[in-house]
Deep mutational scan, measured.
Amino acid sequence: NQESVVAAVLIPINTALTVGMMTTRVVSPTGAPAEDIPRLISMQVNQVVPMGTTLMPDMVKGYAP
């Protein structure tokens, strides 16, 4: 099972992602793949992402898996 990126903390809208904001988990439906964490760092979210929420590609500005 592939791990997806999950918010480790509450991420406010327009916040640039840091490694400490993200964790990985096997979830369904799958979100952004765990191996993309290095690409996701410094990208901004376009909505509030509550802690424990799977990071879906459409939540991150300019990100395409």
Rank of each mutant, 00 (worst) to 15 (best):
G62V: 00
L17T: 06
P38N: 10
A64V: 15
L55T: 02
P38Q: 10
I37Y: 04
T24E: 08
M21P: 07
P50C: 10
V45F: 01
V49E: 02
A7S: 03
T54I: 06
L17H: 05
A8P: 00
I41M: 00
Q2I: 14
I37L: 11
S4N: 03
P65Y: 07
T15W: 08
V60G: 03
A32C: 13
D58K: 12
A64M: 14
M51L: 11
V9P: 00
L17F: 06
M51I: 09
P38K: 09
Q47V: 11
L55Y: 02
I11V: 03
Q47F: 09
T53P: 03
P12I: 09
T15S: 10
L40V: 02
G20L: 12
G52P: 02
V19S: 13
P38I: 09
I13N: 13
G20P: 08
P12N: 09
M56C: 07
G31E: 02
V9F: 00
N46L: 10
A16L: 13
T53R: 11
P65T: 11
E3N: 07
A7V: 08
S4K: 02
G62F: 06
T23W: 09
L40E: 02
L17E: 05
Q2N: 14
N14Q: 04
V60M: 02
E35I: 13
A64Y: 14
E35L: 14
Q44T: 14
P50K: 10
P38E: 10
M56R: 07
V26P: 04
V6G: 00
V19Q: 15
A34H: 04
V45A: 04
T23D: 10
P65D: 10
S4F: 07
E3H: 11
I41K: 00
L55H: 03
Y63W: 06
M59I: 04
P33I: 05
N1T: 13
L40D: 02
L10S: 11
M51F: 05
I41C: 00
G20W: 13
E3P: 11
V26W: 11
T18D: 07
A7C: 07
D36M: 08
L17N: 07
K61Y: 13
T54V: 07
A34K: 10
A7H: 01
G31T: 00
P50H: 12
L17Q: 06
V45Q: 00
S28P: 03
V48H: 12
L10M: 15
G62I: 05
T54N: 04
M56E: 03
V27T: 11
Q2T: 12
A34D: 01
Q47N: 02
Q47Y: 07
D36C: 10
M21H: 08
Q47D: 03
V60F: 06
V19A: 15
A8N: 05
V60Y: 00
Y63K: 01
G20Y: 12
L10A: 06
R39T: 10
A7N: 00
V26I: 14
K61Q: 11
P29D: 04
A34L: 04
V49C: 01
V5Q: 02
M21E: 08
E35P: 03
V27W: 07
N46I: 10
V5P: 01
T53H: 13
E35C: 13
D36V: 01
M43G: 03
P57L: 08
P38A: 11
L55A: 01
M51G: 05
V27F: 00
P12A: 09
I13G: 03
G52K: 02
G20C: 12
V9C: 12
L10I: 06
M59Y: 01
S42A: 12
R25Q: 09
P38M: 10
D36Y: 04
M43L: 14
V9R: 06
M21V: 04
K61A: 12
R39E: 03
G20H: 14
E35S: 15
N1F: 12
I11M: 00
S42T: 11
D58E: 14
M21R: 03
R39Y: 11
R25E: 09
V45L: 07
L10T: 15
T23G: 08
V5K: 00
P29L: 03
L40Q: 03
E35Q: 13
P57V: 08
K61D: 14
P57A: 10
P57T: 05
A8V: 08
A34V: 07
T15M: 09
E35F: 13
V5L: 02
M59N: 02
P65E: 10
K61C: 13
I41N: 01
S42P: 01
G31V: 01
S42Y: 07
Q2W: 12
P57S: 06
M51D: 06
V19K: 14
V60D: 05
I41F: 00
A64L: 14
G31Y: 02
L10D: 15
S28K: 11
A64P: 11
G20M: 12
Q2L: 12
P12M: 09
P38W: 12
I13Q: 12
M43V: 05
V49H: 00
I37E: 02
P65Q: 11
V45P: 00
M43F: 06
P57C: 09
D58Q: 13
E3D: 04
T30H: 15
V48N: 15
L17Y: 06
D58F: 15
G20A: 14
P29N: 03
V26L: 14
T23R: 07
E35W: 14
E3C: 12
T53Y: 11
T53I: 07
L17R: 06
R25T: 08
I37G: 04
P57H: 05
L40A: 02
G20S: 14
M21G: 08
N1A: 14
Q2D: 12
V5C: 08
V5D: 01
M22K: 08
P38V: 10
M43P: 01
V6C: 08
N46A: 07
T18C: 09
Q44R: 14
I41P: 07
R39K: 13
M43W: 00
M56S: 05
M59T: 02
P12D: 10
M59V: 05
D58M: 10
A32N: 03
P65W: 06
T54Y: 02
G20E: 15
E3W: 11
I13T: 12
I11E: 00
I13V: 13
V45I: 04
T24Y: 07
M22I: 09
P65H: 09
N1K: 11
P65L: 09
M51N: 05
S42N: 15
L17K: 06
I11A: 01
V49R: 00
P38C: 12
S28G: 02
G31D: 02
T53A: 15
G62P: 01
D58L: 05
S28V: 13
L55R: 00
Q47K: 02
R39A: 07
M21D: 09
S28C: 14
P12H: 09
I13F: 10
G52H: 07
M22N: 08
S28A: 11
V19R: 15
A64T: 15
T30E: 13
V6K: 03
T15L: 06
K61I: 15
T24D: 08
T30Q: 15
K61V: 15
I41D: 01
V6M: 02
N1C: 14
M59C: 03
P50Q: 11
T23Q: 08
E3S: 12
L40W: 01
G20Q: 15
A64I: 15
G20F: 12
V19L: 15
V49Y: 05
P38R: 08
V26E: 07
V60Q: 03
R39S: 06
M56Q: 10
S42G: 15
P33N: 04
S42W: 08
G31K: 01
V19Y: 14
N14P: 00
Q2S: 13
V45H: 02
S28T: 14
T15R: 04
S4Y: 07
A16N: 11
M51E: 14
M21T: 05
T23V: 10
V27K: 02
A8I: 08
Q44V: 14
P33F: 06
P33Y: 06
E35M: 13
V5Y: 02
L40I: 04
V49A: 03
V60R: 02
A64Q: 15
I37C: 02
V48L: 13
I11W: 00
R39N: 07
A16W: 12
R25L: 09
N46H: 06
G31H: 05
S4H: 04
V9H: 02
A16D: 06
G62A: 06
M43S: 04
M51A: 14
A16E: 11
G31N: 03
Q47W: 08
L55M: 04
L17G: 06
L17A: 06
T18G: 06
P33D: 04
T30W: 12
I41W: 00
L17S: 06
T15H: 05
I11N: 00
E35G: 13
P50F: 09
G31I: 01
V49L: 05
Q44Y: 12
N46F: 08
G52D: 06
I11H: 00
M59K: 01
V27A: 05
G62D: 12
I41R: 00
Q44N: 04
T30D: 10
Q2M: 12
T54F: 00
V60L: 07
I37M: 11
A7Y: 07
V19T: 11
G62K: 03
Y63R: 01
Q2K: 12
V48A: 13
M21F: 06
R25G: 11
P29V: 04
V60N: 01
R25I: 08
D58A: 12
A64E: 15
Q2A: 13
P57K: 05
T30V: 15
A8Y: 05
V45R: 00
D36T: 02
